[in-house]
């Protein structure tokens, strides 16, 4: 007989509902407006390693959104002030113990603040949903140095490649610096991050939509941070890039990298670029994987345990 029941216990579903209620309460108390944005759109992201699901709508190709970011930024540019949304996000080709092609995302933006202040906001939100473990805050550089002896901002790419070959037997030709950093971070550092930890100041090659600034040592860093807990990556925050020209350059670089890797180039979302040209207010924003947060609260390693039908 076919099984019809949920993959999560009702206790997990009740906790999930309770967490959603507390999240909404937190943002209500902080005057952050809840918005509902489309999941289906004509354009998608140019990110090299994000693959959007395409669907046919009235005979035309549209995409299920990999995140609500572009719509959120269009609202911000139009003058919404601080906003949040709780939506489903979709990513083709992502499935595993901690991944589903369809998952729930909480994304929020606060106007007039930077990434450092947003980190404090994350801690406030965590506390309001009952996370009482103390947060650790550490720079990507210090963590990397501690665990590998390499400075991620100044180490040569061949040194990172050599580290991967000698520690993991990985010998991939023509691999970008960012991939070597990701491999080292996910193999040697992420599993160590058991306490709730905010890792800030990422290598500039991983800036995505964050600003690049110099740290105290004069090294260029991406003003981006991630929240890790129980060895899981939960959230990714940025001091948002507001320069439309730089944004367009990054999209073009993405598409060049896509072509080199025999991936289809993506049409840059003209509405998003128009919003950037109109002017995105000074803001910091973050996307948080709600299913992963639930995994940590329930101390499970399997995402199916926290989704009604995972």
């Amino acid at each position: 007989m076919n099984q019809f029941g949920p993959t999560a216990d009702f206790s997990a579903l009740r906790l999930r509902a309770d967490v959603l209620r507390k999240i909404r309460q937190y943002f209500f108390d902080h005057h952050v407006l809840e918005v509902d944005v489309p999941v289906l759109a004509e354009h998608s992201v140019t990110d090299v390693y994000l693959s959007a699901l395409s669907v046919s709508v009235m005979g035309q190709v549209q995409y299920l959104q990999t995140s609500p970011e572009y719509y959120m930024k269009r609202l911000l540019a139009a003058g919404s002030s601080s906003i949040y949304t709780i939506v489903k996000a979709f990513r083709a080709d992502e499935k595993g113990q901690r991944h589903r092609p369809e998952f729930s995302m909480l994304e929020w933006y606060r106007t007039g603040i930077d990434d450092r202040q947003l980190m404090q906001d994350v801690i406030g939100l965590a506390s309001s949903i009952g996370i009482d473990e103390a947060f650790e805050q550490v720079s990507y550089r210090d963590l990397f140095l501690l665990h590998t002896g390499l400075n991620p901002h100044i180490a040569e790419t061949h040194e990172l490649a050599h580290y991967c070959e000698s520690h993991f037997g990985i010998d991939w030709p023509n691999t970008p610096r960012s991939t070597w950093l990701d491999i080292i971070f996910s193999r040697h550092i992420e599993p160590q991050l058991q306490a709730p930890t905010l890792v800030y100041d990422f290598p500039s090659c991983q800036c995505a939509l964050a600003r690049v600034r110099s740290n105290d040592l004069g090294e260029p860093v991406a003003r981006r941070f991630e929240w890790y807990w129980q060895g899981l990556e939960l959230a990714n925050g940025y001091w948002e890039l507001t320069d439309a020209a730089v944004q367009r350059d990054r999209f073009e670089q993405d598409n060049q990298a896509r072509i080199q890797q025999h991936l289809p180039a993506m049409v840059m979302d003209p509405h998003f670029l128009a919003a950037m040209e109109h002017g995105l207010p000074e803001c910091a924003g973050i996307a948080l994987g709600l299913d992963r947060l639930m995994m940590c609260l329930l101390k499970t390693r399997n995402i199916a345990d926290v989704m009604a039908f995972g």
């Binding site: 090299v48 390693y49 499935k95 595993g96 960012s178 990701d182 491999i183 996910s186 991630e226 990714n236």
Partner: peptide, 12 residues
């Protein structure tokens, strides 16, 4: 077989 995907990075 463990699937690893850093946020915006290459999956392995």
């Amino acid at each position: 077989n463990e699937y690893v995907k850093p946020g915006k990075g290459q999956a392995f």
